[in-house]
């Protein structure tokens, strides 16, 4: 069971980091520039309601069963028990899909909620656009970015469990739930469900406490 949990965790870690690495910059750009926002918002709004799970079969077709070990040319590990072997690209892709939209939306919200007075003050104090972006807009957006990340990781965790129950893998905690159901081992099934709930709560609390400090600093002034 430890192995399955580890596989699921590493999958989420990869997919979620990718979502953050792409979602935050995209959100910053969309928040800061009307043109970028207009250009991208239709795409985001069309893509957002598409459930990540709905895309799993498609992404398996696109990425085949390719895994990270193949990506890095480590074919010889194929028949060994190795983490990289279980990192199917299709799975990582739908995790990214599940996590990226809350992050983008949270970041946009953060950038747009910066107080006008703070921007004006920065301008009068001689800050150029980039300087103000770095030292005023990003710090004021941080609480909302963290909120987006929190929603994002929650989504990722839901997506991975569901995805692991479907074809395309034989590892992970979601697979564990389905497999133990088929073997009528309801004790293992229930234990897995408890683990899922516990880890989900940990993620959410962890990001919340990370975001806390920035939230306190901003909200006190309001």
């Amino acid at each position: 069971m430890a192995w399955s949990t580890l596989v699921s965790l590493v999958r989420v870690a990869l997919g979620f980091s990718l979502a953050g690495l792409i979602g935050i910059p995209v959100g910053l750009l969309m928040g800061a520039s009307v043109h970028v926002r207009k250009f991208l918002s239709l795409m985001v709004e069309m893509a957002r309601p598409l459930s990540a799970i709905a895309l799993l079969p498609l992404s398996i077709i696109i990425f085949k069963a390719r895994t990270f070990s193949q990506l890095f040319g480590l074919e010889h590990l194929r028949y060994q028990k190795c983490l990289l072997n279980e990192m199917q690209l299709g799975m990582i892709f739908i995790l990214f899909w599940g996590g990226v939209f809350p992050i983008i939306l949270g970041t946009i919200q953060g950038v747009r909620s910066v107080r006008k007075m703070h921007l004006e003050a920065a301008g009068i104090l001689g800050a150029g656009r980039l300087f103000a972006f770095r030292h005023v807009i990003i710090p004021s957006a941080l609480p909302d970015i963290f909120h987006g990340l929190k929603l994002g990781i929650g989504r990722c965790w839901m997506v991975i469990i569901a995805a692991e129950m479907l074809p395309g893998t034989n590892s992970g905690i979601g697979y564990m739930i389905r497999y133990s159901y088929q073997l009528s081992r309801y004790d293992i099934m229930l234990a897995s469900i408890v683990i899922v709930a516990f880890i989900g709560a940990l993620f959410s609390k962890g990001l919340e406490s990370l975001g806390e400090k920035s939230l306190v600093l901003r909200s006190r002034e309001r």
């Binding site: 703070h118 004006e120 003050a121 009068i124 030292h135 005023v136 710090p139 920035s214 600093l217």
Partner: peptide, 15 residues
């Protein structure tokens, strides 16, 4: 060089 002092609350709260 122009300085401007606002009515209140223009300090950056995160700094």
């Amino acid at each position: 060089v122009i300085g401007f002092v606002f009515q209140q609350g223009a300090l950056f709260p995160w700094m």
